[in-house]
């Protein structure tokens, strides 16, 4: 029974990880930008939702929409005012990395100054577990987050596979000419990648605000997990990132079954390290991607 409970907890956490990792993977896959400020989009949208829904009593659809807009705007501004100017020079990987890290530092402290430095939660009955079987507790939010994750992936797969912008987004890094064949501007497509990649973190951010709670430094952890999930799933594969996120969420929770709790987080990075050594292309990556 404990195993089943831990498995369910893992599924819920995995759904949240998958939602954040997919955004990171989408942005990296199409623009080759290692967007370590991705966690900031998570923090911003989470706090916007908290502020509207919990402080101002705005209805949840409105608050959600506002959070989506905020995350998308953040992604767009990052592309336009940080990454594009840097890439005008012959930017090295680490130039982008340091700039993005600088942005996350600014955002983290800005949130601390404006919203306070303690933990903030959105109180909702949805996060309260009920005993569905003897000793098995499930909160409505578990089902909701798994459902929303499936919904988002279905929509995203359709978008990437069937629409011109989506196909162009996937082709952008390998074959910019194909983008032009569709009559699209590569710069514009990159912006779309940032907008969509940032917007998909919103459900994860809202669910986190309802369950674990928000704090200004939350973005760092989100970024680490997204990065690990992206590698485990295989760089450039949105499907892989989703599976990677799910795997990490499950691993972190199932670790409680046999190990002492203090090792659970290390399990994430054991999985990551093992994948890099033994299967660097990840679940779905093409072997050539991992030279």
């Amino acid at each position: 029974m404990v195993f089943l409970q831990l498995f369910l907890n893992g599924l819920q956490l995995g759904a949240i990880y998958a939602l954040t990792a997919v955004g990171f993977s989408l942005i990296f896959g199409s623009t080759k930008i290692f967007h370590v400020a991705h966690g900031s989009a998570f923090a911003i949208s989470g706090y916007i939702y908290w502020w509207l829904a919990s402080q101002l009593d705005v209805a949840w659809p409105v608050a959600t929409l506002a959070a989506v807009l905020a995350a998308a705007a953040f992604g767009l501004l990052m592309e336009r005012f940080i990454y594009r100017p840097i890439q005008r020079h012959e930017a090295s990987f680490f130039t982008v990395f340091i700039a993005a890290f600088g942005v996350s530092l600014v955002i983290q402290n800005l949130i601390g100054s404006v919203a306070g430095r303690g933990m903030e939660t959105v109180t909702t009955p949805l996060s309260r577990s009920v005993e569905i079987m003897d000793g098995l507790f499930v909160a409505p939010i578990s089902a909701i987050s798994i459902g929303v994750a499936i919904l988002v992936f279905t929509a995203l797969s359709y978008f990437l596979g069937r629409t011109h912008v989506g196909i162009a987004m996937r082709a952008l890094s390998e074959n910019p000419d194909l983008v032009r064949v569709f009559g699209l501007d590569p710069g514009r497509v990159a912006q779309w990648a940032f907008v969509i990649g940032s917007a998909v973190v919103v459900p994860g951010a809202i669910f986190t605000a309802m369950t674990a709670g928000l704090n200004p430094a939350i973005g760092t952890h989100v970024m680490l997990v997204s990065l690990a999930a992206t590698i485990v799933g295989g760089i450039g594969s949105v499907r892989g990132a989703a599976c990677g996120g799910m795997l990490l969420g499950l691993a972190e929770n199932l670790a409680y079954w046999k190990l002492d709790p203090q090792w659970s987080e290390a399990v994430t990075f054991v999985v990551l390290f093992a994948f890099i050594i033994f299967r660097p292309s990840g679940f779905f990556g093409t072997p050539t991607a991992a030279r």
């Binding site: 690990a228 992206t230 987080e265 290390a266 994430t268 990075f269 390290f273 890099i276 660097p280």
Partner: peptide, 23 residues
């Protein structure tokens, strides 16, 4: 890992090592 992989993969590997060693 530096022998096995390059670029972003190595960055992630070193990140994994950092977090493991810290534990």
């Amino acid at each position: 890992p530096a022998l096995r992989v390059r670029g972003e993969y190595f960055v992630a590997a070193s990140l994994g090592l950092q977090m493991l060693a810290l534990t």
